[in-house]
Amino acid sequence: MIEYLHHVSLAVTDLDRAKSFYRNVLCLNEIERPDFDFPGAWYQVGSQQLHLIVYPEASTLRGTGELTSKEGHFAFRVKSYEETLEWLKSTGVEIQENYYSKSGFAQIFVSDPDGNLIELNIER
């Protein structure tokens, strides 16, 4: 019986560039990571975690920063759609807004430097 989602792992190609995005754009706090034999970073996100793994050969790397809700992605629930939108615009990252999504969530899509898609949403 599954209890909850513990973490999501994403492949990245450049750890410094990825860490800058997750720290400076998404404002996540990095947590201690075991001393694996490959580079990466971990972040605490509520009671879940996000793990970055440097693996340039990963078949999950999209090779594009095109924003679309149809590709694999994960979603963060945010406190304020307007504040999140304003913040993201101030950072200069490309965004795709979908306030009136059929899902019932107001959505903003961004991608990290390696094209991993991230949805930021709030209940309408």
Rank of each mutant, 00 (worst) to 15 (best):
H6D: 15
H7K: 12
V12G: 12
V12F: 15
S20F: 08
R23V: 15
N24R: 05
N24T: 03
V25Q: 07
C27N: 13
E30H: 08
E30C: 11
E32Q: 09
R33W: 02
D35T: 12
F38N: 07
P39V: 13
P39Y: 11
P39R: 12
G40C: 03
A41V: 00
W42L: 00
W42E: 08
G46F: 13
S47P: 01
S47N: 11
Q48R: 12
Q48C: 14
Q49D: 07
L50C: 06
L50Q: 09
I53G: 01
Y55F: 13
A58C: 06
A58M: 03
L61Y: 06
G63R: 13
E66I: 12
T68H: 07
S69I: 13
E71S: 07
G72A: 10
G72N: 08
H73R: 01
F74I: 14
F74M: 10
F74H: 04
F74C: 01
A75F: 11
A75G: 13
R77E: 08
V78P: 08
S80E: 01
E83K: 13
E83H: 10
L85Y: 01
L85V: 09
E86K: 00
E86F: 00
K89Q: 12
K89R: 15
V93M: 03
E94T: 12
I95H: 00
Q96N: 09
E97D: 03
Y100G: 11
S103L: 00
S103Y: 06
S103D: 00
G104F: 14
G104V: 14
G115N: 02
L117D: 09
